[in-house]
């Protein structure tokens, strides 16, 4: 009998989140080494529409668990429901997103099931006969391969690490597979007074104009002091339709407002050009800007993980490099203007 893999689908407002399809890519990666069944689990107060979407887009079986009290994510309810489900029907691998909710329930779930847990997984590989899961350490400076002999293994997948699964069977349009997966429906009427949901507050980055800029220049802890943010502002001023941003720590320090924070808990951006200055390139920041058309990184540390995703890598002190670059730019402008002036007088 093959190894069984369960995927806990993430969904918001009736829509399936992209990371859910990335989880399927991870499950298929596991399946390549250890053939076995895959099954989606989807929890919520209203699971019908997302369950339908999942089964038509993936062709995999879906277990829709309707929990009337679960209109919003609630860690206590998730843990209760999932440990009950997986104690009854054991799985070898249980895959969850490394999201605010997955991070919240996965470690406890693994313990409740007497298994192991690996968070922030980026990939699966087979090495020396063992199935290994790859994750980042030290802010992305190192990668580790982890393996386990005691199941079940509960994993959380770093969003954006794998290419989302898309069906190859093109016969029914780009977003459908030929055979819809079966949907099993159940109702679980559980409550938990350990944690009671009391509403949601909007993000301080809502309405930020970052998402509309063509060019974003961002500063990180490498600016070292609030006043040095003016380097970032001056560099941004060279570009039309530009905006300035930053990493989370410099918002935490109140050097810039949270509306300028780029990353998973700030704004996700995809400008034509992103210039990261004094930013190490932690996964939570990178996930918010890696779809930029072109990425330039300035960092004193040649090992900074941001260089793994940059198109142009500049190992320099930003405090020296930025003023220098601005000066070089102005000189070039001046020369160009002189040439233009000359040209015009020639014509006259």
């Amino acid at each position: 009998m093959g190894k069984k893999t369960a995927i806990i689908a993430e969904h918001h407002n009736g829509e399936i989140s992209t990371v859910t399809y990335e989880l399927l890519a991870l499950a298929k990666g596991i399946q390549e080494s250890e053939a076995g069944d895959i099954c989606f689990f989807i929890l919520g107060a209203d699971t019908e529409k997302p369950a339908q979407t999942l089964s038509t887009r993936t062709g995999e079986p879906v277990h829709a668990v309707c929990i009337p009290g679960l209109a919003q994510y609630n860690g206590a309810l998730y843990k209760k429901a999932l440990s009950a489900l997986f104690s009854r029907t054991p799985f070898d691998y249980i895959l969850a997103p490394h999201s605010s909710s997955g991070m919240d329930y996965a470690p406890a779930l693994s313990m409740a099931l007497g298994g192991s847990c690996i968070t922030g997984v980026k990939d699966v590989v087979r090495t020396d006969g063992a199935l290994c899961f790859v994750r980042s350490l030290f802010g992305g400076k190192l990668s580790a391969k982890l393996t386990t002999d005691t199941g079940p293994l509960v994993l959380t997948l770093q969003p954006g690490a794998l290419k989302a699964f898309s069906p190859e069977g093109k016969s029914q349009g780009p977003n459908q597979v030929s055979n819809q997966g079966t949907i099993e429906r159940s109702v679980l009427d559980i409550t938990d007074d350990n944690m009671v949901y009391a509403g949601t507050k909007a993000s301080p980055s809502e309405g930020s104009d970052l998402a509309r800029a063509d060019v974003i220049v961002s500063g990180g802890r490498g600016i070292r002091d609030a006043q040095n943010y003016n380097h970032i502002e001056m560099l941004a001023r060279l570009f039309p339709r530009s905006a300035t941003g930053g990493s989370r720590p410099i918002c935490d320090y109140k050097w810039i407002p949270y509306s300028k924070q780029v990353g998973i808990t700030g704004t996700t951006v995809s400008p034509k050009l992103y210039i990261a200055c004094g930013i190490s390139g932690a996964p939570q920041h990178v996930e918010g800007m890696k779809n930029a058309g072109f990425i330039v990184a300035v960092n004193t540390d040649p090992d900074a993980p941001v260089f793994q995703i940059a198109d142009v890598c500049i190992v320099e002190d930003l405090m020296e490099f930025i003023p220098f670059f601005i000066e070089t730019f102005k000189q070039k402008r001046r020369k160009k203007d002189e040439r233009n002036d000359l040209g015009e007088s020639f014509l006259a």
Partner: peptide, 30 residues
């Protein structure tokens, strides 16, 4: 439960270029 199989430096994801030379040359290249 878990075993660490190995640790290593990760590979680059984009084929980025590393600018070389003096600061002046780097500014000009950029």
């Amino acid at each position: 439960g878990l075993r660490l199989h190995s640790l290593y430096s990760p590979q680059k994801q984009r084929k980025g270029i590393l600018l070389k030379g003096t600061m002046e040359e780097k500014a000009k290249q950029l």
